[in-house]
Design a protein around this nucleic acid. Sequence first.
DNA 1: GATACAGTTTGAGGTGCGTCAAACAATAGA
DNA 2: TCTATTGTTTGACGCACCTCAAACTGTATC
Lengths: 116, 116
Amino acid sequence: MKSEDQQARRAGELLPQPDVAEIDLVKVMHALGDSTRMHLFRTFAETGLQCDCSSERLGLSHLHKSTVSHHLRILRESGLTSTWAVGRNRYVELRRDDLESRFPGLVEVLLSSGTA
Amino acid sequence: MKSEDQQARRAGELLPQPDVAEIDLVKVMHALGDSTRMHLFRTFAETGLQCDCSSERLGLSHLHKSTVSHHLRILRESGLTSTWAVGRNRYVELRRDDLESRFPGLVEVLLSSGTA
DNA sequence: GATACAGTTTGAGGTGCGTCAAACAATAGA
DNA sequence: TCTATTGTTTGACGCACCTCAAACTGTATC
């Protein structure tokens, strides 16, 4: 994670998300049971932190921006991601540590599974 | 697995299921993104092999038998389970080895995650 | 202040899902 | 053969979901 991103994140506002203890495995499975959201999950896992959540930037240029916003919300509400509002942008991050403490090994297993 | 169960399984007919290489992670996630099917997943993981798939036997006495049949079909078609038809009964088994070779560690991670 | 921009919210349309009930197929047992 | 049993299939209903379009909120820039 780049340091300017970290600063921007601290300056932003954290959007509502479930506490670690409240993250539900079935909800997480449901969130990942959609190819678009699985793509976003892998993208955030790779990039670490992401600003400018435009459809093009996220590799979803075939989807309307409101649709992308919808999927990002589901990811956040399931507990998979954190989102900070900074100005007009959104910073989205995978909740790696939280997920690791709640479901040890899950993220690693999902990422190392072939994308096919 | 009890030996009489093994014999019954061999005598039965294997219902259609995807090949190992065709098991799709998103479809698996979707199958587990339902509390009833997550319950069945854990049940089959514990019991190893299960005959008499009645609602009561599976801890789903609140659901109609056709609904249970529906969920078992989705689990099978996603690649999570194998089902053998033996007489009037169905033997359902978690495809542990197949899942392990396709998504190493996934089953273990899911089972060790708290049921909450 | 006026304009442009990033993202959200709302409403609508189409589709799929979970559930039940009834009909059906196939087997076991009398 | 007749009946009971086990599980599947079909159709229906209500609900949730995915998608887009339009309106909206809030921010940055001129």
